[in-house]
Design a protein around this nucleic acid. Structure first.
Length: 666
DNA sequence: GGTGATGCCTTTTTT
DNA sequence: AGGCATCACC
């Protein structure tokens, strides 16, 4: 079974004598090690699949992992295997153990727009940036294990203390709503396990072997959860690559790789250094680039593939021209090489950069899929429906209550909600509960009170049936009862309404299929929704070009890769400090190492900034690559193409000088 | 005075 | 594509 692995991979797959850290360079087959190890545990070591947990960082990675394991494990032997993200594992634990923490199992999961609203209400400030700052601060506190009370105590400035107090009230609010945020999904299980050893034992008994992918992206909280679950047996394999750590901004710390060494003296470390993905030239460029970072774990990636094509660097006039030339190049290349569209990826730093490319691809009738970007579940029509579902699952979910009761409009407006809200605030109860309070009848005009009661009884009826009745029936009835389709057509033009209604139908269809396939109740489905951002299985293996952010591209590979927008202030992102630059460099490294055979990196010489043009400087990372392996093309850089490699740097410098001159308005 | 529609400007990365 | 501001209309 393990015959397809190389010596190190096999060793990693078979090592079971204690904790194991696999330092796996890009393209060195780390997913392969994990999947084969799972198969090995089941087939050769007598583990039941349901006692093994593989933890990934994205749902995409989890799905792929599940698929690859089921290819290795015939029949039903993969049944029960836990493959999930940290967050969804946390959700599962929390749902099972909710009572111990004083939550009901149907707790709501708040996404960042929910928490944004809560914080903005708590602060009474309209400053969006400040609210975002508070959001990040709270998130950092949680992942670093600082309780609200502690945050208040250690605050070293008036501002910090103000934030800490908001944190405290924020946490109280979530609890009142029977809601948790993303960080709580990991934070709360850790608290639970610390306070309830018997619960920890249960889970240690259930999850007897842990495999953690992308270990370099864990934050302190996730590390704690891992440690607790692994227990004294320390039966786990962590796989990671410090050069691909790109989530420091959300609290991940590469130090967790080292902490593993200090916390587990018996830790075995295996390095995977043979790359099976890229050409020698791509690797050479990637290695040279990443060597500009201060290194902790020395690692030397090598490949026995051919030297490969030169890496093209293309200077485009502006973003429109960049899109045009990349798409032309891609189409020509596909035609000449008889390749498939799915062999190509266009990667970028920020979501908005995809726009020009989407336009161009549509114009050329090239099929494409976009990953990352705004989630399907963020669309207003989907949020409307999920508000109802959330409310049915958990009537104390105030944000869901407000959205549902006002969409479609049913005669309850701000004035009524305000009265209800202030009463709820006084009594420390949810809006839903407040509606049934005896005093409310006197506080509201009869008409409003009647409408409110009709709505609440309606929700109550659905709530009663949520556990027992089939999910599909319930959904159909809900949509009919609220007349959602009609309302869509009444409130937007026919074209938009049509597409929105189609989204709703897709969503409902997906919910029905998924709840049947996974044997999940509607309530379990509702909680899952907050954690995913795409309808899975909708566009599998399409023959289409992939557009993706560099973050979302991690773990993927493509024969031909275009990295676009390689400019200062974009990649690296503006205002990056020294540490930030290193992370940006790793991001570029991730991009470069996605490529198997050809790679083109492009940048714009200018970009529209409002009315006029702003000049763009090529990314410093281009200079950090061995110039001998690059071929320059396009616009000003055309001249660079003919020079010898030694002059490459000079030319680039001169090119920059030329670009520094003002460009005429057009 | 309040609300709605239109148009212009700006976009970090994600569970 | 979304958010914000401005303008016009009710």
């Amino acid at each position: 079974m393990l015959s397809k692995l190389n010596t190190e991979q096999r060793e990693a797959a078979m090592y079971l004598d204690g904790p194991l850290l696999v330092l796996a360079g890009a393209g060195s087959g780390k997913t392969r090690v994990i999947t084969h190890k799972i198969a090995y545990l089941v087939e050769e070591c007598g583990y039941a699949a349901r006692n093994i947990a593989a933890i990934t960082f994205t749902n995409k990675a989890a799905n792929e992992m599940r698929e690859r394991v089921s290819l290795l494990l015939p029949g039903k032997s993969a049944k029960g295997l836990v493959v999930s993200t940290f967050h969804s594992l946390g959700m599962t634990i929390l749902r099972a153990e909710a009572k111990l923490l004083g939550y009901k199992p149907q707790f709501s999961i708040f996404d960042s727009s929910d928490t944004f609203k809560i914080i903005s209400e708590l602060t009474n400030s309209g400053d969006k940036q400040e609210i975002r700052d508070i959001q990040t601060q709270i998130s950092n506190w949680k992942s670093a294990f600082v309780a609200p009370e502690q945050a208040v105590v250690v605050a070293d400035s008036a501002d910090a203390e103000a934030y800490a107090r908001i944190y405290m009230r924020y946490q109280e609010t979530l609890r009142a709503y029977q809601a948790v945020d993303f960080d709580d999904l990991i934070h709360l299980p850790v608290l639970l396990f610390k306070d309830h050893p018997e619960a920890l034992l249960r889970w240690q008994h259930k999850l007897r072997y842990l495999l953690i992918d992308e270990y370099q992206d864990t934050n302190d909280c996730q590390y704690q959860l891992t440690r607790l679950l692994a227990g004294t047996r320390a039966a786990f394999t962590a796989v990671g690559d410090d050069d691909q750590a790109i989530y420091a901004w959300r609290g991940a710390s590469i130090e967790n790789l080292h902490n593993l060494r200090t916390d587990y003296s018996q830790l075995r470390v295996i390095k995977l250094e043979q790359n099976y993905r890229s050409s020698q030239r791509i690797l050479k460029v990637a290695n040279a680039l990443i060597n500009h970072n201060t290194k902790v774990f020395e690692k030397k990636l090598w490949s026995d593939h051919g030297i490969g094509d030169p890496i093209r660097v293309y200077a485009a006039r502006d973003d429109e021209h960049e899109a045009e030339s990349v798409v032309m190049k891609l189409v020509t290349h596909k035609f000449e090489n008889q390749a498939k569209f799915s062999d190509y990826a266009i990667l970028y730093r920020s979501n908005y950069l995809s726009r020009a490319f989407e336009e161009q691809l549509r114009a050329q009738r090239v099929p494409y899929t976009v990953s990352g970007g705004t989630s399907f579940f963020d669309k207003p029509e989907i949020k409307d429906i999920t508000a109802y579902l959330r409310l049915i699952a958990n009537p104390d979910d105030d944000p869901a209550f407000i959205r549902a009761i006002t969409t479609p409009k049913r005669g309850i407006g701000n004035a009524t909600l305000e009265k209800l809200g202030s009463h709820a605030g006084l009594r420390h109860i949810s809006l839903f509960e407040a509606a049934f309070d005896v005093q409310i009848e006197q506080l509201l005009p009869p008409r409003q009170y009647e409408d409110l009661m009709v709505f609440c009884r309606f929700i109550n009826r659905l709530e009663d049936r949520a556990e027992s009745d089939p999910c599909g029936e319930l959904l159909d009835e809900l949509l009919r009862a609220i007349n959602y389709e009609t309302w869509l057509y009444d409130s937007s033009d026919a074209r938009q309404a049509e597409s929105k209604w189609k989204n709703v139908e897709d969503f409902i269809g997906w919910l029905k299929r998924k709840s049947e396939a996974d044997e999940k109740s509607l309530i379990a489905m509702v909680q899952t929704i907050a954690l995913i951002n795409m309808l899975e299985g909708k566009d599998k293996e399409q023959e289409a070009v992939s557009l993706s952010t560099l973050h979302a591209a991690k773990g993927l590979e493509f024969p031909h890769v275009f990295i676009i927008g390689a400019e200062e202030d974009i990649l690296p992102f503006r205002d990056s400090d020294a540490k930030g630059i290193e992370e940006e460099r790793r991001l570029m490294y991730v991009g470069v190492t996605r490529a198997e055979r050809t790679l083109q990196i492009s940048y714009c010489k200018r970009r529209r900034r409002g009315k006029d043009w702003a000049l763009c400087e090529p990314s410093r990372f281009l200079e950090e690559m061995p110039q001998s392996e690059l071929v320059f093309a396009g616009g000003h850089a055309e001249a660079v193409q003919v020079v010898t490699k030694d002059e490459g740097m000079d030319k680039l410098a001169r090119l920059k000088a030329m670009l520094a001159k003002p460009v005429a308005e057009s």
